[in-house]
Amino acid sequence: MGARLHIIASVTLAVAAALSGAVNVGSSARAQPAALTAKQSTALEAYNRALSDFKAILSQRRRQIDAHEPLPNLPGQALYLARVDVMSTYKDLTDALPSRLGRPNKYEVPPAYFDADIEPLIDEYRALFDVMEAPPPNAQASVTPFKDVVDLGTAIARAKGLDAKGADAAGRISLGLFFAETNGKQNVGNGRSNTYIGSFQTGPSEDRNGRKRWQAIKPSIAALDPKLIARDDREEARIGSLDHRLNHWTAVRDGLMNAHADLFAQIPDIARTLPDPIDQMKFFELIQIIPTATRAALKSGNLLQSRVSDPTVMKYLRNNSIFAYGRTDRARTSASFREILDAMWLFNQKFTRAQAEFERVRTR
Rank of each mutant, 00 (worst) to 15 (best):
M257K: 02
D148L: 11
D225H: 09
D279L: 09
L317R: 00
I322P: 06
F146M: 11
D92E: 11
P98R: 06
L5F: 05
R61H: 04
P136M: 03
I267M: 12
I8K: 09
D130V: 07
A3Y: 00
K91A: 15
L228F: 08
S59W: 00
T294I: 08
E181I: 01
R49S: 14
E339N: 07
K91M: 08
T12K: 11
R61F: 01
Q355P: 00
P111I: 05
L177Y: 04
A29G: 09
A56D: 10
N24Q: 14
D254Q: 09
D233Q: 15
V313I: 15
D342L: 12
A22M: 06
M281F: 01
K147R: 14
A265S: 14
E285H: 08
S142V: 00
S321D: 14
P226V: 06
A96P: 03
T250G: 06
R126H: 11
A67Y: 00
S193T: 10
P75A: 07
L19G: 01
A170L: 08
S41L: 11
R295E: 13
R192N: 12
Y113D: 11
A296D: 14
L58T: 06
L51C: 05
A67G: 03
R362M: 13
I65R: 07
G171Q: 06
A46H: 04
D95Q: 09
A259Q: 13
A34E: 15
T273N: 06
T294Q: 06
A159Q: 08
E206Y: 03
L128R: 01
T328H: 11
G153A: 03
S199H: 00
L286W: 00
L71D: 05
R192S: 12
P268D: 09
R63A: 14
R364S: 12
P291C: 04
K350G: 01
G176D: 05
M87L: 13
S205I: 11
T195I: 13
A354V: 06
S193D: 03
Q186D: 05
R83V: 00
S241Y: 02
Y107A: 03
W345D: 15
P226N: 10
R362H: 11
F54L: 01
Q355K: 12
M344S: 06
N320K: 12
W249F: 15
D130L: 09
D130R: 14
N183C: 03
R213G: 02
A159G: 15
P72N: 04
P120E: 09
L152V: 10
G153V: 12
T363K: 15
L121D: 03
A251P: 06
A180R: 01
F337G: 01
